[in-house]
Every structure is written in structure tokens, then in C-alpha cells.
Amino acid sequence: RELRDAFREFDTNGDGRISVGELRAALKALLGERLSQREVDEILQDVDLNGDGLVDFEEFVRMMS
């Protein structure tokens, strides 16, 4: 339940997936600093298991585990 709530916080447009822009904004909020595009792309590449360029809830749960 906590992970579902956190996912909703990251998924600002409510489409059920976290985009690169949403991921960048969430990481900035969490870390208090802006990451480079390359750093965000590397994180997305590690987390995006199905290669669609987005983070779905299952991928998010794995990222947070």
C-alpha cells in the first residue's frame, strides 16, 4: 500500500506509468538536487525491464526493493 501511494506521487499525470520527466522531478524532490539527463537515463535503463521507456508499477516495486 505504501509503495502504491509512492507510485501515485511519482506518476503525476495518473496514467499508471512514470515517464522520464516524472522520474526526473521525483528524484529531484527526493534528493534535493537535479540529476543530469544522463544520470536519469541510466536509472531508467536499469529500472525499465520491458524497454518501453516508462516505469510501470511492477518495475517501480522492484526499483524500491
Results as ranks from 00 to 15, higher is better:
Asp41Gly: 06
Lys28Gln: 04
Glu9Leu: 06
Arg4Gly: 05
Val55Arg: 00
Gly16Trp: 02
Val55Lys: 01
Leu31Ile: 09
Thr12Ala: 06
Asp52Trp: 03
Ala29Val: 04
Ile18Tyr: 01
Val61Arg: 10
Val40Leu: 15
Arg38Met: 08
Ser36Gln: 13
Lys28Thr: 12
Arg4Trp: 03
Gly53Ser: 10
Arg17Ser: 09
Glu42Phe: 04
Ser36Tyr: 04
Leu30Met: 01
Val40Cys: 09
Glu58Lys: 14
Ala6Asn: 13
Val61Pro: 02
Ile43Asn: 13
Asn13Cys: 02
Glu33Pro: 11
Arg1Met: 15
Arg17Gln: 06
Asp52Leu: 08
Gly14Met: 04
Leu44Met: 05
Phe10His: 14
Ile43Val: 12
Glu42Ala: 06
Arg4Ile: 08
Leu30Asn: 15
Gly21Met: 09
Leu54Pro: 04
Glu22Thr: 02
Leu31Met: 15
Val20Gly: 12
Val47Asp: 05
Asp46Ser: 08
Glu59Thr: 14
Asp48Phe: 03
Gln37Met: 04
Phe10Tyr: 07
Glu58Asp: 09
Glu2Lys: 07
Thr12Val: 03
Asp52Ile: 08
Ser65Pro: 06
Gln45Lys: 05
Leu30Phe: 06
Gly14Trp: 01
Leu54Lys: 05
Gln45Ala: 09
Met63Leu: 14
Leu27Ser: 15
Asp56Asn: 11
Leu54His: 04
Phe7Val: 00
Met63Asp: 04
Ala29Glu: 08
Phe7Met: 03
Gly32Cys: 02
Leu30Lys: 15
Leu54Asn: 13
Glu33Trp: 15
Leu31Asp: 06
Glu2Thr: 09
Val47Arg: 12
Leu54Cys: 05
Val55Asn: 01
Asp46Arg: 02
Ala26Thr: 04
Leu31Ser: 14
Gly32Leu: 01
Leu3Glu: 04
Met64Phe: 14
Val61Gln: 10
Glu33Thr: 10
Gly16Pro: 00
Leu30Thr: 11
Leu30Asp: 08
Asp46Leu: 04
Phe60Glu: 01
Arg34Pro: 12
Arg1Leu: 04
Val40Phe: 09
Gly14Lys: 12
Asp11Lys: 00
Gly14Thr: 02
Glu42Ile: 06
Phe10Trp: 09
Val20Cys: 13
Leu27His: 09
Leu30Ile: 07
Glu9Val: 10
Glu22Arg: 02
Val40Glu: 15
Asp41Trp: 07
Glu42Gly: 09
Ile18Asp: 00
Ser36Arg: 11
Gly51Thr: 12
Gly51Glu: 15
Gly53Asn: 09
Glu58Gly: 11
Gly32Glu: 02
Gly53Asp: 09
Ala6Val: 12
Met64Cys: 14
Arg38Asn: 14
Gly51Arg: 09
Glu22Gly: 14
Gln45Gly: 06
Leu44Lys: 13
Arg17Thr: 05
Gly32Ser: 02
Ala6Gln: 12
Val40Ile: 13
Ala6Leu: 11
Ser19Gly: 10
Asp52Lys: 09
Asp41Val: 05
Asp56Met: 05
Asp46Asn: 06
Ser36Cys: 03
Ile43Gln: 14
Asp46Gln: 07
Ala6Pro: 00
Leu30Val: 10
Leu31Glu: 14
Leu30Cys: 13
Gln45Met: 07
Phe10Met: 03
Asp5Gly: 04
Met63Ala: 10
Arg38His: 15
Val47His: 13
Ala29Pro: 02
Val55Glu: 00
Leu30Gln: 12
Leu27Asp: 02
Ser19Trp: 01
Met63Tyr: 08
Glu22Lys: 03
Asn13Val: 01
Ile18Ala: 01
Lys28Phe: 04
Glu33Ser: 10
Leu54Gly: 14
